[in-house]
């Protein structure tokens, strides 16, 4: 199997005085990454809402029997006594989670927009600056007096 056989080139000569230094390279690409899914629609937040919905639905059924009403009240008092979360606290917690999720999604949108802007700036400005440097170098070389070989 033949080797790649590319002729080893001689060592690169150092640039002449006044040579343009090459453009700097980026340590990381400026590409826009794939967008993250919104938090509001995520599995965990959706499960929380679904569980709350089931709880609310079961307690919405009116108790026709007085004994049942007394039983429900007793269970609520017992839960409070044992430190279990109150329905109102849970409701507030779910509202807070919703608010945080909404804020996360808003921040995500702004960050994505910023990534797009940074990538556009790096690409467009980088290309235009390089083009300008090349044109300036061309103009400068034309303006330079020819080398005296005599």
């Amino acid at each position: 199997m033949a080797t790649m056989a590319r002729e080893p080139v001689p060592a690169m000569k150092p640039g002449a005085p006044g040579d343009e230094p090459p453009p700097a390279m980026f340590d990381r690409p400026t590409d826009v990454t794939d967008p993250l899914p919104p938090v509001r629609g995520s599995e965990h937040v959706a499960s929380l809402h679904a569980a709350w919905g089931r709880m609310a639905a079961s307690e919405a059924v009116p108790e026709t029997s007085a004994w049942r009403r007394v039983g429900r009240k007793a269970r609520s008092l017992a839960d409070r006594g044992l430190g279990r979360p109150d329905r109102e606290v849970m409701a507030n917690l779910i509202r807070a989670v919703d608010a945080v999720a909404a804020r996360c999604d808003e921040l995500l949108e702004r960050l994505t927009s910023q990534q797009v802007s940074i990538d556009d700036m790096a690409t467009i400005y980088g290309e235009e600056l390089t083009r300008m440097r090349a044109e300036l170098a061309r103009v400068a070389s034309r303006a330079r007096p020819p080398a005296d070989d005599g």
Binding site: A2, T3, M4, M25, F26, P29, T30, G126
Partner: peptide, 17 residues
């Protein structure tokens, strides 16, 4: 691409070239 190194692979044979 875009002034960033994206990856590197070996070029072993003349056929690769």
């Amino acid at each position: 691409r875009g002034r960033a190194l994206r990856g590197e692979v070996n070029v072993d044979t003349r056929t690769d070239l």
